[in-house]
Design a protein around this nucleic acid. Structure first.
Length: 589
RNA sequence: CCGCCCAUAGCUCAACUGGACAGAGCACUUGACUUCGGAUCAAGGGGUUGUGGGUUCAAAUCCUGCUGGGCGGACCA
């Protein structure tokens, strides 16, 4: 990328300036090449001179001057000094040539090579299969899907996976809840279990099973019926979730069963492995993971709020505080009479990590987790360290939850509360691309306030349509061009000419669209996909300005084809960003 | 009590991860086309970046005190 070339040029110029005696001798610190805020400051800037002021004992403008003078001459950029910055401006020749390159790269325009073909996994979604897919899960999957697309563009071979939590007390409760609803179909009144699922989605599943199985489950022992209903229910729910995800444009390579980790024996192997590494401790009948192998003390892992009750049991504050993160419970007899039967959540995370990095050999494992999993982050890293796995291969994203507003009032969303908002409903109301754009447009550290009424009302103003409109407009230009010129003369002229950018708006568009690889690199590095939405909007806005300022059709050939080529490059770029975000690229709207 | 995260224009959010004058959309005001798609373009008003200190040549960004909010600190969801 040109940015790297400029970085190298600045480094070389600094060395050259030292050699020439224009700068004193010192080691060059690490520095970055930035993009100036204002376009009139150039395309790239180095603030190295400011950094060097103290080291070199010189005024920044003088240093910048010395560096700028020693930048090797290039056809790609010109150099100027302003306010202590060394600014680089891309030349017209460079821009013209780059537009040509974009057209040659075509669908591959925007690809960068970071991954070198290494296998990477993005695990996202992974909501409990105890209800339909909510809009909260929507944020998870849209972010994960976009990151997966990005990693593909960055040269990884990407595997998309959904982790099904298909075991544990939660599934038992789900089965018991289904039993309640199932019995209700036949007029039998069974109370909902504590923390059961009252939602319409679960009721519907129960009715579905009732229609299929008849009343035969009533004759079974309740335990057996609940187990059957639990596993049948998970299957139906997953099918429903899958269809919701498809409507959102999200596809998976695999749905991974948590239960399989235990059935295969991997979980027990991991336990032995950890035991061999002396990080397993038993206390009070429970099995703990303790990263540094220190013993478990009474009250460890207990919330501070609970201390008051436990104080009689001799729990002191300093005993419980800082160690809480390092010690994690794996199994407890209090979960189930048979401890081996009911591991804690974390107990599954360990073999799952091993499965990803060792058994399947992923060089990069991206996790997309909601903020309720934040406490698991240090634990998973601790487990990776304890097992001597490469912790750098693990990237965990924590995104903030969505807050739902209904007629101006905040609604607590929860499947158990029975007031969740389903992906299907939102997609019905505002469409797939508008939902995706809204969910993507904010940093994952920001909690999204999702106002359904407002979203419906403003769905036609969703920025995604602006971006898609830009794309469709360019398609329309080419349809017109083909109609007036004929397909072959158009193709011949397009191939025979090169870009010759003249107008300010043409240059601005070229500069903007050429940023694409840097944006892909930015998203790949930060794992923050919202950068695409701001870029897509800005790019489209720059195009619209160009469209307004510069007529494309009915111009002399040189201008016509130059602008057609620029427009095509812009269209390729818009299409690429839209596809990275998993959105459609309409030719007409 | 401890940990993670958040606070930026009336509203919803950006700010390329420490750089130049903090930018967009919505809303509001005004203007532009007999011409390639008006789902458009241009212009305007609107800010002590929650608050006090610190580090730095440079702070919305890093450290720290405070205020307000979200989430978590496992008996498994």
């Amino acid at each position: 990328m040109i940015r790297d070339q400029i970085h190298a040029a600045v480094a070389a110029a600094t060395v050259a300036a030292q050699a020439a005696g224009a700068l004193p001798a010192f080691d060059i610190p690490t520095f970055t090449i930035e993009r100036p805020r204002q376009p009139d400051m150039g395309d790239y800037a180095a603030s190295l001179a400011m950094q060097l002021a103290r080291i070199a004992r010189m005024a920044p403008p003088k240093i910048a001057e010395a560096i700028a003078r020693h930048v090797p001459p290039s056809d790609h950029y010109t150099v100027e000094v302003a306010a202590g910055y060394v600014n680089f401006r891309l030349t017209q020749a460079h821009l013209n040539q780059q537009i040509g390159d974009v057209l040659v790269q075509n669908e591959k325009w925007g690809d960068i090579d970071l991954g070198g073909g290494a296998p990477a996994q993005v695990e996202h979604g992974s909501a409990n299969p105890t209800g339909y897919a909510t809009i909260g899960t929507g944020r998870n999957v849209v972010v994960g899907d976009t990151l997966a697309n990005t990693l593909v563009a960055a040269g990884y071979v990407v595997h998309r996976e959904w982790y099904i939590n298909d075991r544990g007390a939660q599934i038992a409760r789900f089965g018991a809840s289904l039993y309640t609803h199932y019995c209700a179909v036949f007029g039998v009144d069974v109370p909902l279990p504590p923390k059961g699922y009252p939602g319409d989605d679960v009721v519907t599943v129960a009715q579905e099973i009732a229609a299929r199985e008849g009343d035969r489950l009533l004759k079974l022992p309740q335990d057996e019926a609940c187990r059957f209903l639990g596993s049948a229910g998970v299957e139906i729910m997953m099918a429903h979730i899958r269809s919701s995800l498809t409507r959102l444009g999200v596809q998976y390579d695999n749905f991974f069963s948590e239960n399989s980790l235990h059935i295969s024996g991997l979980a027990d192997r991991m336990l032995n492995e950890l035991r061999a590494r002396n990080v397993i401790r038993e206390h009070d009948g429970a099995i703990w993971f303790s990263e540094d192998g220190s013993p478990i003390r009474a009250g460890q892992g207990v919330k501070r709020d609970d201390y008051a009750e436990d104080e009689d049991a001799g729990v002191s504050e300093e005993d419980a505080g800082p160690k809480a993160v390092q010690a994690v419970m794996l199994r407890s007899p209090r979960i189930s009479p048979n401890p081996a039967d009911r591991p804690t959540y974390f107990f599954s995370d360990v073999p799952y990590l091993w499965n990803k990095l060792v058994d399947r050999g992923f060089k990069l494992a991206v996790y997309v987790w909601g903020e309720d999993h934040q406490a698991d982050v240090p634990r998973l890293y601790a487990a990776a360290r304890a097992l001597s796995l490469n912790a750098d291969a693990v990237k965990i994203l924590i995104y903030r939850f969505i807050t739902i507003m209904r007629s101006g009032v905040e609604v607590r969303m929860g499947k158990r509360a029975g007031n969740a908002i389903w992906i299907d409903d939102v997609v019905d109301e505002v469409g797939k691309d508008a939902v995706r754009f809204t969910l993507l447009s904010r940093s994952i550290d920001t909690k999204i306030i999702f106002d359904l009424d407002l979203l419906k009302e403003q769905s036609d103003k969703n920025p995604v349509y602006y971006v898609q409109y830009g794309h469709a407009r360019i398609a329309s230009i080419f349809r017109n061009a083909q109609e007036t010129l004929g397909a072959e003369p158009l193709a011949a002229g397009f191939a025979a000419h090169t870009c010759d950018l003249q107008h300010e708006s043409e240059m601005a568009l070229a500069r903007k669209l050429l940023e694409l690889p840097e944006i892909v690199a930015l998203v790949a590095a930060t794992l923050q996909p919202h950068h695409y939405t701001t870029y897509a909007y800005a790019l489209c806005s720059t195009f619209s300005r160009f469209y307004d300022d510069c007529r494309i059709l009915k111009q002399p050939d040189a201008v016509l084809f130059s602008r057609l080529r620029l427009a095509k490059a812009a269209q390729l770029t818009l299409a690429r960003v839209l596809r990275l975000m998993g959105m459609e690229t309409p030719e007409k709207m």
